[in-house]
């Protein structure tokens, strides 16, 4: 239908005020969120950035130093040491954990497993254990004097098992984190698998596809968004590594330095070193690094998905 100019004009006029009204009402709805968001997110971030521009000394007080703290952080071997450690942790631990989670989710979803509900809850259960308790518990097991590692060593009459030695420490921490979070990621994958329409399986079966073919052609593509989410969560989790090394530090203080991970570094800087400003700087840098890497993963994931 083609509208005559005459009919367009009267329509256009009342449109204008209506638009303005709509946008105002929208703000009304978003307002409460924005207020809380500004209060609990933007304000602390802004305050941290503000803090990171200062230096407060025991002698001499507070002074504006601009980006000095950032320059210092980029030249701080302790900061880089921690950052590289969590990066290598990320590169090794996250793939292992996600593959375990994926295999578990596919197995439970396959409908061939006996008592799959039990497996689901058992695999998920470690996530319900507080990270601090988990780290303490594993710390005891890792002890090669009194713990499980020691018992196994006694049993086989050697001392090969030394989870709390310099060579194996990061692996041991990776093991704790995998134990804690594999079940959580499994649940994300499993939930995504449950949303796949069973029609697809039926069609695949009619076409003569076997289980592995179904996994490759239906389940994995359908899981892609969930996998990306899991990867992003894991990247964040890895860069935030704190509880496990901080607890184990009580057992092996020499092995885990005060700057073992960037978060531990920031924590020790501010709470034992009274260097709040520099700690804020480290935290801001870590926030940016995490955001950038997570964003790249998301971007790549989406692009590959569209292909």
């Amino acid at each position: 239908m083609t509208a005559t100019p005459a009919s367009v004009l009267p329509l256009a006029r009342p449109n204008k005020p209506r638009k303005a009204k709509a946008s105002f009402a929208g703000w009304g709805f978003v307002g409460p969120f924005m207020l809380v968001f500004a209060l609990v997110f933007l304000a602390p971030v802004a305050y941290s950035i503000y803090l990171s521009m200062f230096r407060n000394q025991l002698i001499g007080g507070n002074a504006f130093v601009g980006f000095d703290n950032y320059v210092r952080a980029f030249n701080d071997p302790q900061f880089w040491d921690g950052l590289l450690r969590v990066a290598s942790f990320l590169a090794v631990q996250v793939p292992i954990m996600l593959i375990i989670a994926l295999v578990a989710a596919l197995a439970i979803d396959s409908a061939r497993m006996y008592a799959s509900n039990v497996f689901r809850i058992v695999i998920f259960l470690p996530y319900a254990v507080p990270a601090v308790v988990a780290a303490l518990m594993w710390g005891f097991m890792y002890s090669d004097r009194l713990g499980l590692a020691g018992n196994i060593n006694d049993l086989i009459g050697s001392d090969v098992l030394a989870p709390l030695s310099p060579q194996w420490l990061l692996v041991s921490i990776g093991n704790i984190v995998t134990w804690e979070f594999a079940g959580y990621n499994m649940l994300i994958f499993y939930a995504a698998l449950r949303t796949i329409s069973t029609d697809l399986y039926e069609a695949a079966a009619l076409d003569g596809a076997n289980q592995f073919r179904i996994i490759r052609s239906i389940k994995l593509p359908a899981l892609r968004p969930a996998i990306i989410i899991s990867i992003i969560f894991s990247i964040i989790g890895s860069f935030q590594l704190f509880n496990e090394p901080n607890i184990l530090r009580g057992i092996v203080p020499n092995l885990i330095s005060t700057f073992y991970t960037p978060n531990m570094y920031a924590y020790n800087l501010s709470f034992t070193g009274q260097q709040f400003n520099y700690a804020a700087t480290v935290a801001i840098i870590m926030g940016v690094v995490t955001a950038v890497i997570a964003y790249i993963v998301q971007l790549r994931g989406n692009r590959a998905g569209q292909r």
């Binding site: 602390p44 935030q240 940016v288």
Partner: peptide, 9 residues
């Protein structure tokens, strides 16, 4: 993601 690292602050 950015929210998180900063929460520690």
């Amino acid at each position: 993601p950015a929210a998180l690292a900063v929460a520690a602050l």
